[in-house]
Lab assay of single mutants.
Amino acid sequence: ENVVSAPMPGKVLRVLVRVGDRVRVGQGLLVLEAMKMENEIPSPRDGVVKRILVKEGEIVDTGQPKIELG
Score class of each variant (00 low, 15 high):
residue 38 E to L: 12
residue 48 V to G: 02
residue 5 S to P: 07
residue 39 N to M: 15
residue 18 R to C: 11
residue 35 M to E: 12
residue 11 K to F: 07
residue 36 K to I: 06
residue 3 V to K: 06
residue 8 M to K: 06
residue 16 L to Y: 05
residue 61 D to Y: 15
residue 28 G to Q: 07
residue 61 D to Q: 14
residue 6 A to V: 07
residue 56 E to M: 09
residue 34 A to F: 15
residue 54 V to S: 01
residue 24 R to Y: 13
residue 33 E to H: 08
residue 58 E to C: 07
residue 13 L to W: 02
residue 22 R to V: 13
residue 35 M to H: 13
residue 69 L to D: 01
residue 48 V to S: 05
residue 56 E to S: 08
residue 52 I to P: 01
residue 21 D to H: 06
residue 54 V to L: 02
residue 27 Q to L: 06
residue 57 G to M: 05
residue 40 E to V: 15
residue 42 P to Q: 13
residue 65 P to D: 07
residue 16 L to I: 05
residue 36 K to Y: 12
residue 28 G to V: 15
residue 65 P to F: 08
residue 45 R to P: 01
residue 3 V to H: 09
residue 61 D to F: 14
residue 9 P to N: 09
residue 21 D to K: 03
residue 54 V to P: 01
residue 21 D to C: 10
residue 34 A to L: 10
residue 58 E to M: 10
residue 51 R to V: 08
residue 1 E to R: 12
residue 19 V to I: 10
residue 43 S to P: 02
residue 11 K to H: 04
residue 23 V to T: 02
residue 54 V to H: 02
residue 40 E to M: 14
residue 1 E to S: 14
residue 49 V to D: 01
residue 5 S to I: 13
residue 1 E to L: 14
residue 70 G to Q: 13
residue 57 G to T: 03
residue 36 K to F: 13
residue 39 N to T: 14
residue 14 R to M: 06
residue 1 E to C: 15
residue 55 K to I: 11
residue 7 P to K: 13
residue 54 V to Y: 03
residue 47 G to P: 01
residue 47 G to R: 02
residue 65 P to Y: 08
residue 12 V to R: 01
residue 68 E to V: 15
residue 69 L to V: 08
residue 64 Q to F: 06
residue 37 M to Q: 13
residue 65 P to Q: 07
residue 31 V to Y: 04
residue 49 V to E: 01
residue 28 G to C: 15
residue 45 R to H: 10
residue 27 Q to D: 09
residue 28 G to A: 14
residue 66 K to N: 15
residue 68 E to W: 13
residue 21 D to I: 10
residue 65 P to E: 06
residue 20 G to K: 05
residue 25 V to A: 13
residue 66 K to M: 15
residue 64 Q to W: 08
residue 55 K to W: 10
residue 29 L to G: 00
residue 13 L to H: 03
residue 46 D to L: 05
residue 69 L to I: 13
residue 64 Q to M: 09
residue 8 M to D: 00
residue 58 E to I: 04
residue 19 V to T: 07
residue 53 L to G: 03
residue 63 G to A: 08
residue 41 I to T: 03
residue 47 G to L: 03
residue 7 P to V: 11
residue 58 E to F: 05
residue 14 R to Y: 06
residue 26 G to T: 03
residue 33 E to N: 05
residue 2 N to F: 15
residue 23 V to I: 08
residue 64 Q to N: 05
residue 21 D to R: 04
residue 68 E to F: 13
residue 62 T to N: 08
residue 4 V to K: 04
residue 29 L to Y: 01
residue 46 D to Q: 07
residue 25 V to D: 04
residue 54 V to C: 07
residue 6 A to L: 06
residue 47 G to S: 05
residue 51 R to I: 07
residue 40 E to L: 15
residue 6 A to Y: 06
residue 29 L to M: 06
residue 11 K to L: 09
residue 16 L to N: 03
residue 58 E to Y: 06
residue 60 V to R: 02
residue 34 A to K: 05
residue 16 L to R: 04
residue 56 E to P: 12
residue 22 R to Y: 14
residue 48 V to K: 05
residue 48 V to H: 08
residue 18 R to A: 11
residue 66 K to T: 15
residue 11 K to W: 08
residue 45 R to V: 14
residue 9 P to V: 09
residue 50 K to N: 09
residue 1 E to I: 14
residue 21 D to N: 06
residue 15 V to E: 00
residue 29 L to W: 01
residue 26 G to Q: 04
residue 21 D to P: 01
residue 66 K to P: 07
residue 52 I to A: 02
residue 7 P to Q: 12
residue 55 K to A: 11
residue 59 I to A: 08
residue 6 A to N: 03
residue 34 A to T: 13
residue 4 V to M: 05
residue 27 Q to W: 05
residue 53 L to D: 03
residue 20 G to W: 06
residue 9 P to R: 14
residue 15 V to A: 00
residue 40 E to C: 15
residue 4 V to G: 04
residue 39 N to Q: 14
residue 24 R to L: 11
residue 49 V to H: 00
residue 45 R to I: 15
residue 41 I to H: 01
residue 46 D to G: 08
residue 56 E to G: 05
residue 14 R to K: 11
residue 49 V to A: 02
residue 46 D to A: 11
residue 12 V to K: 01
residue 37 M to F: 09
residue 21 D to E: 13
residue 55 K to L: 10
residue 27 Q to M: 09
residue 68 E to D: 05
residue 69 L to W: 06
residue 65 P to N: 07
residue 21 D to L: 09
residue 7 P to R: 11
residue 12 V to P: 01
residue 52 I to M: 03
residue 28 G to R: 08
residue 36 K to W: 11
residue 32 L to M: 11
residue 27 Q to S: 06
residue 6 A to D: 04
residue 21 D to M: 10
residue 70 G to N: 12
residue 17 V to S: 00
residue 6 A to I: 09
residue 47 G to E: 02
residue 18 R to K: 13
residue 40 E to S: 09
residue 18 R to I: 09
residue 33 E to L: 15
residue 54 V to E: 01
residue 65 P to I: 11
residue 40 E to P: 07
residue 35 M to G: 13
residue 60 V to D: 02
residue 19 V to D: 02
residue 37 M to C: 11
residue 47 G to K: 01
residue 30 L to P: 00
residue 57 G to N: 08
residue 46 D to V: 07
residue 65 P to G: 10
residue 49 V to S: 00
residue 60 V to Q: 03
residue 32 L to Q: 00
residue 3 V to P: 06
residue 44 P to N: 05
residue 56 E to N: 07
residue 27 Q to C: 06
residue 27 Q to N: 03
residue 23 V to Q: 01
residue 20 G to T: 03
residue 7 P to L: 12
residue 38 E to A: 11
residue 53 L to C: 10
residue 58 E to A: 08
residue 17 V to L: 02
residue 34 A to Y: 15
residue 66 K to R: 04
residue 40 E to K: 08
residue 40 E to N: 08
residue 8 M to C: 12
residue 1 E to Y: 14
residue 35 M to W: 11
residue 38 E to R: 11
residue 19 V to E: 09
residue 11 K to N: 02
residue 64 Q to Y: 07
residue 30 L to Y: 07
residue 15 V to M: 08
residue 61 D to T: 15
residue 16 L to A: 00
residue 15 V to L: 13
residue 11 K to I: 11
residue 26 G to S: 05
residue 1 E to D: 13
residue 43 S to K: 01
residue 63 G to S: 07
residue 61 D to P: 06
residue 54 V to M: 02
residue 44 P to D: 06
residue 55 K to C: 10
residue 39 N to P: 03
residue 50 K to S: 10
residue 41 I to W: 05
residue 16 L to E: 00
residue 68 E to Q: 09
residue 37 M to H: 10
residue 10 G to I: 05
residue 40 E to A: 08
residue 49 V to W: 00
residue 2 N to C: 15
residue 51 R to W: 06
residue 32 L to V: 09
residue 4 V to D: 03
residue 66 K to E: 15
residue 16 L to M: 09
residue 39 N to A: 12
residue 36 K to L: 12
residue 21 D to T: 07
residue 60 V to S: 03
residue 22 R to A: 11
residue 59 I to K: 09
residue 21 D to S: 08
residue 7 P to W: 11
residue 25 V to L: 13
residue 34 A to G: 09
residue 70 G to M: 14
residue 25 V to C: 12
residue 32 L to S: 00
residue 61 D to R: 15
residue 62 T to Q: 13
residue 65 P to S: 08
residue 50 K to C: 14
residue 25 V to T: 12
residue 65 P to T: 08
residue 5 S to G: 08
residue 48 V to Q: 07
residue 26 G to R: 05
residue 42 P to I: 13
residue 42 P to N: 10
residue 69 L to G: 01
residue 31 V to N: 00
residue 9 P to H: 11
residue 32 L to P: 00
residue 66 K to Q: 15
residue 43 S to A: 11
residue 41 I to G: 02
residue 1 E to K: 12
residue 23 V to C: 06
residue 28 G to N: 10
residue 15 V to G: 00
residue 16 L to S: 01
residue 18 R to M: 10
residue 16 L to K: 04
residue 42 P to E: 08
residue 8 M to A: 08
residue 46 D to R: 08
residue 11 K to C: 09
residue 66 K to D: 07
residue 13 L to M: 08
residue 33 E to Q: 11
residue 53 L to I: 06
residue 34 A to N: 12
residue 55 K to Y: 12
residue 47 G to W: 05
residue 23 V to N: 01
residue 56 E to R: 09
residue 66 K to L: 15
residue 7 P to S: 13
residue 3 V to F: 15
residue 1 E to A: 13
residue 26 G to H: 06
residue 21 D to Y: 06
residue 30 L to C: 06
residue 50 K to T: 13
residue 30 L to I: 12
residue 43 S to D: 02
residue 23 V to E: 01
residue 55 K to Q: 11
residue 18 R to N: 11
residue 35 M to R: 11
